[in-house]
Amino acid sequence: MNGLGFLLRELPWFWRGALVTVEVLGGVMGLGVLLGLTGAVLQVYGPPPLPALVTGLERLLRGIPPIVLLLLVFYLPWDLPPLVVAIVALGLCSAAYQSQIFRAAIQSVDRRQAEAARALGMSAPQAIVYVILPQALRRAIGPWSNEFSSQIKDTSLAYIVGVVEILRQARYVISYTYGNSLLIYGFCALIYFVLTRAGNAVLYRLEARLWVPGFERRLLGRRA
């Protein structure tokens, strides 16, 4: 059998690897939004010790390479399944970056809007939830799609803790066929490209649809 034959025969398993990659990505981005958004709100609006605390944590996590974080979580004394290790480690890392995306988006909303909301009788949390965040989150989609593209590729590091994603599957085939690296890695590149492109297409459409009227926007080939 030649390399292509092996590749075709292993296609279902590459599909499975791709699903695992999407699973890791979903977990990482979900955890990232949850912690990142909370962090951003606390950084901007939190009572005194909190902003400094969150900032310190964010600086720390942004200063650790994802692969080191993966190994740290892997060697924790609990018996965590590989998938959980990957999602927690990469999710923490992404949360730190996402907190800065959300912080910038929150701060891009004119503070007079918050003041106006307070003047109308809204409490501070109400002003954040009903006035600031609906605008900030829509503006965050663009930079967030960048973080998405970056994370989808970082999921390939998860193999080190035993997650069988696309790249690990590729290593299986290359090792037992004693070759075909160019073909197999080329195929991996294609899968990553398709996943990234598909994800971004959805995000671009979302960005266009949720565009905040009155702001500049990128031309996406169709009118929103």
Binding site: R9, P12, W13, Y172, S175, Y176, Y178
Partner: peptide, 12 residues
């Protein structure tokens, strides 16, 4: 699982 003929993964 990348060390044939001792260990490998073939078709899952």
């Amino acid at each position: 699982a990348a060390f044939p003929p001792f260990t490998w993964v073939e078709q899952g």
